[in-house]
Design a protein around this nucleic acid. Structure first.
Lengths: 231, 231
DNA sequence: TTTTGTTGATTGATCAGTCAATCAAAAATA
DNA sequence: TATTTTTGATTGACTGATCAATCAACAAAA
């Protein structure tokens, strides 16, 4: 069996195994032995190729992000109008692969890990920015910038929230319902916002401090997905 | 120093210490020694009172939930109209205590833990249901049931999403901005939904499968907060 | 003297990471 | 072509550290 050129094969097998084991176990507290066993190799080999458990985990989250990114690129290519692109972005994030229990569990585990690992956090920040930025780009074609920023933030939050709620399997919101909820949000805010450009009038009971635009961060480095940027 | 009646004091000190250490460390992978040290006692004492690490952790999440619940009860008591109650619910969830970095980190850690621990999951499901149910009760006073259900689900998701995004400290959305975003969502959907009771018309590019109402779970046990129910 | 609170010391298990050794393919040499 | 050498792939066995959990013992109140 020992042939030359095994390295890329093993690396991929180990990363895939890690994702699987993490998703299955629902936590990053899995052993190198578990991962190696799942990949059908010895624990020592995993260390040989990745140096440490942390490195293997980092590679695993990179692969998760890479997958999401390439799905997004593909989906955006197919859509023509800004509105259609918004729908495409939403749909990709709830695509079956992303919504698989294992994948959700893995994302969640990485979110938790981000509290400790600076590097993990960096990757998730890239994801969060990218999602917001992609939404923003198309919203700007439909709305004034400040409204677009607000709605991009809201839609991104709703997507993440539906995702995390799904992880509990408490509110069995399915893929289609999640998509529909997010679409409804967009539709409603596009409607009310374009009809009264000042933002939604807050005849609210609570002091809503008006449109939230001015509270949002500005001039943040744009991480828009028009191809070619880090993996 | 050894006096009688220490038990409740020590229990509270240990639970508080656990929350603190978990939030600080950003993970449940903290040692009993860490917790005990933070509480100023020996690790053996923590075992003495809680039997196991798992029990201590369960008590910790219970305390988190109890706190949120009592805040909610208080906030609801003050609000009069349904619309004001909705704002109160939103505000409580983004109350300063909840939004403290430590607390956010702790919640996130428990979400991850819920993938493995059935008991932890149960508690978080209670939280998720309660949030949705509280929103729903007041929305029903303003909208048809199916629309109310949809919007309750959406608002709950947005709250959770803003929360998790906050955990990354990437999109520095503050408390006020988070509240404003959620209020905007409610305002927009209340506006569009009451004007066209069929739900938001989906002249969407993507097949939004119409209003999501029928996809949402029905007849789920209501966990409404009108006082007296489990802790 | 019984009860309650408290701890130091210890145990047993689990793991990440290391290392020396093995094996087989490929490359170099005769 | 036959051989030796080098190199990459792979593992079993081991180490050192960490930790949850236990227990026997002691101290102060009742």
């Amino acid at each position: 069996m020992p042939k030359v050129g095994m390295e890329p094969v093993r690396r991929k097998a180990l990363v895939d195994a890690a994702l699987r084991v993490i998703g299955d176990h629902g936590s990053l507290a899995v052993t190198m032995s578990d991962i190696a066993r799942q990949a059908g190799v010895s624990p020592a080999l995993a260390h040989h190729y990745f140096g440490s458990k942390e490195h293997l985990l980092i590679e695993t989250i990179r692969s998760l992000l890479r997958q999401l990114r390439s799905d997004t690129v593909a989906a955006l290519k197919a859509a023509q109008t800004p509105r259609a692109r918004l729908s495409a972005i939403i749909r990709v994030n709830f695509h079956a692969d992303q919504f698989a229990p294992d994948t959700i569990a893995a994302w969640l585990a990485f979110y938790a890990e981000a509290q400790r690992s600076e590097e993990t956090r960096r990757f998730l920040v890239i994801y969060a920015r990218r999602l917001r930025s992609n939404l923003l780009a198309d919203l700007k074609a439909l709305l004034p910038t400040d409204a677009a920023e607000r709605i991009a933030e809201g839609a991104a939050a709703m997507i993440d929230g539906l995702y995390i709620r799904q992880s509990l399997k408490s509110a069995p919101i399915g893929i289609e319902a999640s998509i529909a909820l997010t679409e409804d949000y967009l539709n409603a805010l596009l409607a009310t916002t374009s009809s009264s450009p000042e933002g939604v009038k807050a005849e609210t009971a609570a002091p809503s401090s008006g449109p939230a635009g001015h509270l949002l961060p500005q001039g943040r480095r744009d991480d828009h997905i028009e191809p070619s940027r880090d993996q």
